[in-house]
């Protein structure tokens, strides 16, 4: 008797999540998330489009040559890639030692520091850039690479500190101690034990930082435009001045590095490395 009710309840609990309702939810989510991307993506190869047809009037690769042949757009691509790489590098140099310290040392102000890093996230980005811009005017950093780089690095500090900190903290002490007992120096322990084990977390942080920099539009636009244009800031002008299809081509180009990194780091990001980093300990 109890077995039957148990099973009945179990299936009742499962039932609430099966059947046509969850199927509908699934389809709606697919349309909601992928629909806009597909709809825009098709445009990159479309001749023209008549409402309310669900497909374009014809296919062409003309828009690709427009984008690839445009010099300013090409420079934006270069700027974006160079800035993102530089940002990750600078951010790693500044933040990774701190991440290690947060994970392994107890020191005066540790908790305040962690919360202080978070405060950076709480101030609205646009408001922050406006306040930074008024400082940059005074320091003559408006429209300079240095100014834009500072803005980009600021956007990565939280990722580069929190996620690797969680990764360093997750390396078992016992392993490090065992290596020490076997006669390894502190440096050797770090290089051979701690760092490799924390590497997935560091990689996720690097990927997130790269994307954050690659994606950064508001601050770059405010500080860098019109002298330093990256791909996202170029999008602002593109969508206003060019036909829709050019923006679509540009969007695909802009999404390529992101998708490549997605495929590379997907396992670790979904595996909880990212989520783990966002809990102050």
């Amino acid at each position: 008797m109890t077995m039957i009710t148990k099973r009945a309840r179990k299936s009742a609990a499962r039932l609430s999540f099966s059947g046509p309702l969850s199927g509908l939810f699934f389809v709606l989510m697919v349309v909601f998330i992928l629909g806009p991307l597909a709809w825009l993506g098709i445009r990159a190869f479309a001749e023209s489009w008549t409402f309310p047809n669900l497909g374009p009037d014809g296919w062409t690769l003309r828009w690709w040559s427009v984008v690839l042949g445009d010099e300013t757009l090409g420079r934006a691509v270069q700027n974006s890639l160079a800035l993102a790489a530089l940002t990750v590098l600078v951010s790693a140099c500044i933040c990774l030692p701190a991440a290690y310290a947060f994970a392994r040392y107890e020191f005066w102000g540790r908790r305040t520091f962690l919360i202080g890093l978070f405060a950076l996230n709480a101030f609205p980005k646009m408001g922050l850039y406006v306040t930074i811009a008024s400082l940059f005017y005074a320091l003559n950093l408006m429209g300079t690479v240095m100014g834009v780089l500072i803005v980009h690095v600021l956007g990565t500090v939280v990722f580069m500190t929190w996620i690797p900190a969680a990764a360093f903290a997750a390396v078992p002490r016992s392993l490090e101690e065992a290596a020490r007992d076997a006669g390894a120096t502190k440096l050797r322990v770090f290089i051979s034990v701690t760092f490799p084990l924390a590497l997935p977390g560091i990689l996720v942080a690097a990927v997130m930082s790269f994307l954050a920099s690659f994606d950064e539009a508001q601050g770059t636009y405010l500080i860098g435009a019109p002298d330093i244009m990256t791909m996202p800031t170029q999008m602002y002008t593109l969508v206003l001045n060019y036909p829709n299809q050019v923006a679509a081509v540009f969007s695909i180009l802009l999404a390529i590095p992101s998708v490549a990194l997605l495929l590379a780091a997907h396992k670790h990001i979904v595996g909880g490395t990212l989520a783990e980093g966002f809990q102050i300990k």
Partner: peptide, 23 residues
């Protein structure tokens, strides 16, 4: 203790300088 503090300092200084100070 002091080593940890100094290792943690660079991002904090960066934020104080370019977030705290502008604010």
């Amino acid at each position: 203790r002091p080593l940890g503090f100094f290792l943690a300092l660079p991002p904090i200084i960066l934020i104080l300088l370019f977030v705290g100070f502008p604010i």
